[in-house]
Design a protein around this nucleic acid. Structure first.
Length: 439
RNA sequence: GUGGGUGUAGCUCAGCCUGGUUAGAGCGCCUGGUUGUGGUCCAGGAGGCCGGGGGUUCAAGUCCCCUCAUCCACCCCA
């Protein structure tokens, strides 16, 4: 190929006008709902100092950080000192440590922004994607955990994604699970990864995976006996209650469930084997799945140890993250095909002599709040071509004003959707259009 | 990171198994029918080193090897 590849880099996307319009609508709803729940917006740089990011996401996570080489005379060293942010939680922890004394406590913020991962791209998995996080810093009360879940559920409902299920668990409850069923403590993380797949692979699948991971047969037998039961939750609750840590975990889960109560658009349940990314969660964790989909559309939990990595004192924090790309995918599938993203009106340009007049006309209409496009191809383009452009853009009304109309002080108004065309006096035009477009 | 599929016109693809004159279709695009009327219709047109490199052959889009890209499953995640 002699020309340069015009595709965006692998794992990234271009957003054409219709895409941006759809995304912005969803973002606006999210911002509105989080603001209504008392969360403030926060923004941070796209890149951070490398040391801020490393060591926060586990060994595999560190490999996925997009590093930025040192620049100028140091570039030849091949070292990186900066990196694109990997998520929005670590930047929050940095901000909380840096500005903690200036911020209200508890500090509640939401953050919608792109993050980057040097991952291998796949379906619904990108190297650049948007995250939307909502967190509360500085409260060790489970009220903060409940507030997160209520706000996230409200957002999903407002977006029109009713039919979701919020699954709640707690890190101590998972530790209790491990202890109660006799899984060696050092295999805890590995065993939980296998257990988390129960919904996906079933009891037999989990048993097989536990075996592969070297879990003792006795522990597997005890686990699978309970996992297969219809009253799985009751069975696990009994086991957990027998251990200190398990009982503490159950208490967290039940307290959060009680505080959250009912949410519109979905239900909230205890999920005994929900594990989540274990790296920094310390208390309640949750995950939201949508009915009929095995995809997680939101998730979160409490991470009381993270901010302490940036300052001497630990600060408790809890929050959640919306799976924006998946949510947008769902919205796209549900969307009516007939959504128009273009302007209301197109002013055509009949001839170069009338161009200045057309510009002035368009500007006047904008003053009346009408989204008005002017055919930028100039007056040499045939009217048919200009109308075709209008049609293509989804514009509802085209204005035609040649020498004839200019002399008469009128404008021809053509409604593209119906094909109707009328001539109105120039002075009546704004009112006429407003009636036509916003009856 | 492991296994499998696919790369041909702007887009979606046919042709490849069984190599053989100018590589096709639909949609889109451009022009005209309509020198000031789109979306429908009719006619015409432009646009392809068949992903890249090497090999086999008189001859390669077609067969073989390598490479790159991309998609699916697993792993991991949002």
């Amino acid at each position: 190929m002699s020309t340069i590849d015009a595709n965006p880099p692998s794992g990234s996307r271009d957003f054409l006008p219709a895409d941006v319009a759809r995304r912005d609508r969803a973002f606006a709803t999210i911002r509105e709902v989080f603001a209504r729940h008392g969360f403030d917006p926060l923004d941070t740089p796209a890149f951070e100092r490398l040391e801020v990011l490393t060591g926060k996401y586990g060994e595999e996570g560190d490999q996925l950080i997009f590093k930025i080489l040192r620049r100028g005379e140091h570039e030849a060293s091949g070292e990186a000192d900066l990196a694109l942010r990997y998520d929005l939680t670590v930047p929050l922890a940095r901000v909380a440590a840096r500005y903690g004394s200036q911020l209200p406590t508890p500090f509640k913020r939401y953050h919608i922004a792109p993050v980057w991962r040097a991952d291998r791209p796949g379906k619904g998995r990108y190297r650049e994607f948007f995250q939307c996080d909502v967190d509360t810093v500085g409260s060790d009360s489970l009220v903060a955990d409940a507030v997160t879940i209520v706000a996230v559920a409200d957002v999903l409902d407002q977006l029109g994604l009713a039919g979701f299920r919020v699954q709640v668990n707690a890190r101590p409850a998972l530790a209790g699970l491990i202890e109660a069923y006799g899984v060696p403590a050092e295999l805890e993380a590995s065993a939980l990864v296998a257990l988390d797949k129960l919904d996906k692979v079933g009891v037999d699948g989990v048993a097989a995976e536990l075996t592969d991971r070297g879990i003792p047969a006795a522990a597997i037998a005890a686990l699978t006996a309970d996992l297969g039961r219809d009253d799985l939750e009751e069975a696990v609750r009994e086991r957990l209650a027998a251990t200190d840590v398990g009982a503490a975990g159950l208490a967290q889960v039940d307290r959060v469930l009680a505080l959250v109560g009912e949410v519109p658009g979905g239900d909230v349940v205890y999920a005994p084997v929900l594990a989540r990314g274990l790296s920094y969660y310390t208390g309640p964790v949750f995950e939201v799945v949508h009915a009929g989909l095995d995809a997680t559309i939101a998730a979160g939990g409490r991470y009381d140890g993270l901010i302490g990595m940036f300052q001497a004192q630990d600060v408790p924090a809890t929050g959640g993250s919306l799976g924006l790309e998946r949510i947008l995918l769902l919205l796209e599938q549900a969307e009516d095909a007939a959504v128009r993203s273009g302007p209301d009106v197109l002013v055509t340009v009949m001839d170069e002599d009338g161009a200045a007049d057309a510009l002035a006309l368009a500007q006047r209409l904008r003053g009346h709040g009408l989204a008005t496009d002017l055919y930028a191809g100039g007056g040499r383009a045939k009217l048919g071509k200009q109308l075709k452009y209008a049609d293509r853009r989804g514009v509802r009304v085209a204005l035609i004003r040649g020498a004839e109309e200019r002399t008469a002080g009128t404008v021809a108004v053509k409604t593209l959707t119906s094909g109707d065309q009328t001539t109105v006096a120039e002075a009546d035009l704004p009112a006429h259009l407003l009636r036509l477009l916003h009856p």
